[in-house]
Computed example of a mutant assay.
Amino acid sequence: MWWLFALLSAFFAALTALFAKMGVKGIDSDLATAIRTLVILFIAWGIVVYKGVGREAASLTRENWIFLVLSGCATGLSWIFYFRALQLGRVSQVAPVDKLSVAIAILLSVIFLKDVLTWKTAIGAGLIIGGTFVLIL
């Protein structure tokens, strides 16, 4: 079932690129990121309230908080750079290069999370890296 959510994530990420490119036209990319973040904030908290899981925040560990805050910082920086790249470049270039994050995530998961790197995963990551360089050059 995880793959269905991953496919939906990919679909909405594609829409994100398209809508963001249209939305940053003529405005500061940081302002665009802030507006997008505000919308996400309302959606995410709306889901939490709807599901009634907000009280679970009290049971989060210090480690949970540290890594969720770090993840939020990384996400924010990623979005800021992504929106600026979209403002300067074409979606057909920026979005695929942004997906280099997949190969980087694989590498980092092997190093820090001790994930096992299979040949299939290594070849896929290599193709992503190669494709990224083709698009950049």
Rank of each mutant, 00 (worst) to 15 (best):
Q93P: 00
L4R: 00
V116I: 06
G131Q: 07
D115H: 13
D115L: 07
G52L: 05
V69Q: 14
T16R: 07
S59N: 08
T37R: 07
G130I: 02
E63T: 14
W45E: 04
M1A: 13
L38G: 10
A57W: 07
A95D: 13
A122R: 00
C73Q: 04
T37P: 01
W65V: 08
A44S: 15
G126Q: 13
K120F: 06
L18N: 08
R90I: 06
F12A: 09
L15C: 11
K51T: 06
V97W: 13
Q87A: 12
F81D: 01
V94W: 04
A6S: 12
D98A: 07
L127P: 08
T16H: 06
F112M: 04
L8I: 04
F81G: 02
Q87R: 01
S29R: 12
S59M: 14
I43A: 07
T121W: 01
D30L: 14
S78P: 02
F67S: 03
S101M: 13
V134R: 13
L113S: 07
F5H: 03
R36M: 12
T33Q: 10
T33E: 06
A122G: 05
K25R: 15
A13K: 05
Y82P: 00
A6D: 07
F83Y: 06
I66T: 12
D28H: 05
A17I: 00
K21L: 10
D28G: 10
W119E: 02
F83R: 04
I43Q: 00
I111K: 00
S92C: 01
W3D: 08
M1N: 10
F67N: 08
I47P: 00
I35L: 15
W79N: 00
A85F: 01
S92F: 05
L8C: 03
A125T: 11
K114W: 04
V39M: 11
A10M: 09
V24G: 08
I128W: 04
I40V: 04
L31W: 06
N64F: 02
L68V: 03
G126E: 15
K21V: 12
R90N: 15
S9I: 08
A58H: 02
G26P: 08
L107I: 10
I136E: 14
I80W: 15
